[in-house]
């Protein structure tokens, strides 16, 4: 039944951060109270708050009194410093203890996936369409003639403004293949050794 009297509400468990392509989410396991809807509130603390603002915590309004067990942190984790996150359960006037992430999270630890890539032939032009991954990203596109892996051409772009850009990649005659990498200026990996190849073979 509903929590009676001063019965304690357990703190959320299995708190973790999922970070892919500089999009960061906090997740936790639901607190189950039969016949009741438990809500949750999330707060964050950056290195600045710890060192200069008496360890204060800042609530995330979109994740205050939410029934979801996931919270989008991307807007708030917007500096490359160490963050801590915490979440508590709330049922009416009853509040659990805070459940806090173990260790710190720095957005440089984000994992990169290969960029979505599409190649389109248009007359004598080969257009490489890359899905927009956000402002922090740069792209490197490698392309070569089918069967001539050793002779590769490379194009690099700072960032793409519209959602999907066509890059004018001169045809290399006959069949062409492509590879694209995404890297981000705030990630742990130095720009030179990026992971996240997207391989695509295209017979033009």
């Amino acid at each position: 039944g509903i929590l009676g009297g001063d019965a304690l509400l357990p703190a959320p468990q299995s708190i973790s951060i999922l970070s892919t392509n500089m999009k960061h989410f906090l997740t936790w396991s639901p607190v189950i109270v039969q016949g009741a809807t438990v809500r949750y509130s999330v707060e964050f603390q950056g290195e600045y708050e710890r060192e200069y603002a008496n360890g204060s915590w800042i609530p995330i309004s979109e994740c205050s009194l939410t029934t979801a067990t996931i919270c989008n942190l991307t807007e708030d984790i917007s500096a490359s410093v160490a963050y801590k996150l915490r979440v508590r359960a709330e049922l009416g006037a009853t509040r659990s203890q805070w459940g806090t992430t173990k260790g710190f999270f720095n957005r440089a630890m984000t994992s990169l996936t290969p960029p979505q890539l599409r190649a389109v032939a248009d007359g004598h032009h080969l257009l490489v369409e890359l899905a927009d991954m956000g402002p922090s990203f740069q792209f490197r596109v490698l392309y070569w003639r089918k069967g001539q892996e050793s002779r590769r051409y490379s194009r690099q772009g700072q960032e793409c403004s519209p959602p999907a850009w066509h890059w004018d990649v001169p045809r290399v005659g006959g069949r062409a293949a492509h590879r694209a990498q995404a890297g981000c200026s705030e990630c742990l990996l130095p720009a030179g050794s990026l992971r996240g190849f997207a391989a695509l073979s295209f017979a033009g």
């Binding site: 248009d122 032009h125 793409c160 519209p162 066509h166 004018d168």
Partner: peptide, 8 residues
């Protein structure tokens, strides 16, 4: 062809 290319 009504195709549009963008360059930055």
């Amino acid at each position: 062809t009504k195709k549009r290319w963008f360059f930055s």
